[in-house]
Design a binder for these strands. Structure first.
Length: 426
RNA sequence: GGAGAGGUGGCCGAGUCGGUUGAAGGCGCUCGCCUGCUAAGUGAGUAUCCUGGGAAACCGGGAUCCAGGGUUCGAAUCCCUGUCUCUCCGCCA
């Protein structure tokens, strides 16, 4: 959520920012409502001040057994006036809020202005596309032939888009998760969180999934709970409505969670095998920082995610999203795209975002500055570190042999407990 | 799922028959004083949000005692609904 006071102060800056993000033209309405609201609040507050004063007088009169009838009558009218003004305020605030909660965050100054993903900026590449002297399979053929992934049967269980890992495939998936968690905990100093997978409407609103992405989440209508599309939601909401002392910052959490996404309206796009699924596993890093250091933290976060792929020796590139491709809540975002040699494509495995105070405002997470004791909103950031399905794609395709088996790199072997994946016995 | 108890400031905890209670008291914390260090003692301060004024320090007004409604001139205090926590019973991985 954007700050109405800042908008009031520098409307043109916000107008530009919102336009860069293909955001609405509702700024004038917003400012008009804001002005109306403040006028009426002033009138209501004046009446309340009067009522408070006279009520005190009434109390005194009653104490000394004098009649207060005329004052009580007078205050009845004042009370009615307050009630109607407050009702007006309520209605204005409702309309104001409706606009405010749908305005996206505005991009950081370092973000390129652009419309679509076409205009994203390549920031760096790590390693290079590996070369092979034999024909490559894509991950789905590999996995089918090895018997480590069974979409035919999972569709029987749940429908399309739900992976069923089998045997060494299941173990490899679990190895990824544990490897990544340990890596971030031990090398990058994150605290591990194991969060709930169902979250309330408030929580999903807080991180910015609601109201825009309601249709992309699975909803338990009976209890009005959403299955998490990312651990970002529960983990960020850990500190909702809190004021943290500055010396506790930065806070660095890492969480594994299953993630659930309906992927509504994405038919036929990237749908082969694991590239786009309704349920997947992801290790997510979340940081809470002071505003001063959040962009430093953003770079660190990117680095933390990259190191996973470096440790696994997988080629990737990093792009900085242009303004139009940024998510609703993000001020800046890097995507890490991993190379899948069998598919001859890059796949997004991680999104590393700085939300500045946008989520903090929605979730009401603040901190108390050490210097002067003042309270302000902190900054939240998060990054996937990383999502497994596309990691699996790149991994299988990169480490395939000419016999269709998969070689496990040494660093992962303590987790898999095997060095190679061969065809599973049925 | 059934029955009951309860949600007050950073924490504990008091709030009488509704009336200067943003809220006693204590702890903690901050600044100062004092005692050669520590402990003890002592003085002051110690919520957030909205709004008006001011460059700012700050000053004025309003709101907030889980949330939302209601009763009332006036509610932390009464009524209703929701929500969360705890206890007991049932059920269950």
């Amino acid at each position: 959520m954007l700050d109405i006071k800042q908008i009031r102060r520098e409307p043109e800056r916000f107008r530009k920012g919102l336009e860069a993000k293909n955001g609405g033209e509702k700024l004038n309405d917003l400012l008009e409502l804001d002005q109306q609201r403040r006028n009426i609040v002033t009138r209501s507050d004046e009446l309340k001040a009067l009522r408070n004063r006279v009520s005190g007088e009434i109390a005194q009169l009653k104490k000394t057994k004098q009649s207060a009838e005329d004052k009580i009558q007078e205050m009845k009218e004042v009370g009615a006036g307050i009630k109607s003004l407050d009702e007006e305020i309520r209605q204005i605030e409702e309309r104001l809020n409706e606009i405010l909660i749908t305005l996206p965050n505005i991009p950081h100054e370092s973000v390129k202005i652009g419309q679509t993903a076409e205009e994203n900026v390549l920031v760096k590449e790590w390693g290079q596309q590996p070369q092979y002297d034999y024909d490559l399979k894509d991950h789905l053929d590999l996995a089918n032939d090895l018997g480590i992934l069974d979409f035919r049967r999972s569709s029987k269980i749940s429908g399309s888009g739900f992976p069923l890992y089998v045997g060494d495939g299941a173990r490899l998936e679990r190895a990824f998760i544990n490897f990544m968690l340990d890596f971030h905990i031990e090398r990058h100093g994150y605290k591990e969180i194991f969060p709930p997978y169902l979250v309330s409407r408030d929580s999903a609103f807080g991180t910015g999934q609601l109201p825009k992405l309601e249709d992309d989440m699975y909803l338990d209508k009976t209890d009005d709970l959403f299955l998490v599309p990312t651990a970002e939601i529960p983990v960020t909401n850990i500190h909702r409505d809190e004021i943290l002392p500055e010396n506790q910052l930065p806070i660095k959490y890492v969480a594994y969670s299953a993630c659930f996404r309906r992927e509504a309206g994405s038919y036929g796009k990237d749908t082969r095998g694991l590239s786009r699924v309704h349920q997947f596993n992801k290790v997510e890093m979340v940081r809470f920082t002071t505003p001063e250091v959040s962009y430093l933290a953003h770079e660190e976060l990117l680095n933390d995610a990259e190191e996973i792929l470096q440790a696994l020796n997988l080629h990737y590139r990093v792009v900085s999203l242009c303004s139009g491709d940024l998510s609703f809540a993000a001020a800046k975002c890097y995507d890490i795209e991993i190379w899948a040699p069998g598919s001859q494509k890059y796949f997004e495995v991680s999104s590393v975002s700085n939300f500045e105070d946008f989520q903090a405002r929605r979730t009401n997470i603040r901190y108390r500055r050490a210097a002067d004791g003042k309270v302000s909103y902190l900054h939240t950031l998060n990054g996937s570190g990383v999502a497994t399905p596309r990691l699996m794609i790149a991994f299988l395709e990169t480490y395939q042999t000419d016999e269709g088996t998969i070689v496990i790199p040494e660093i992962l072997q303590p987790y898999t407990r095997f060095k190679m994946i061969k065809t599973q016995s049925k």
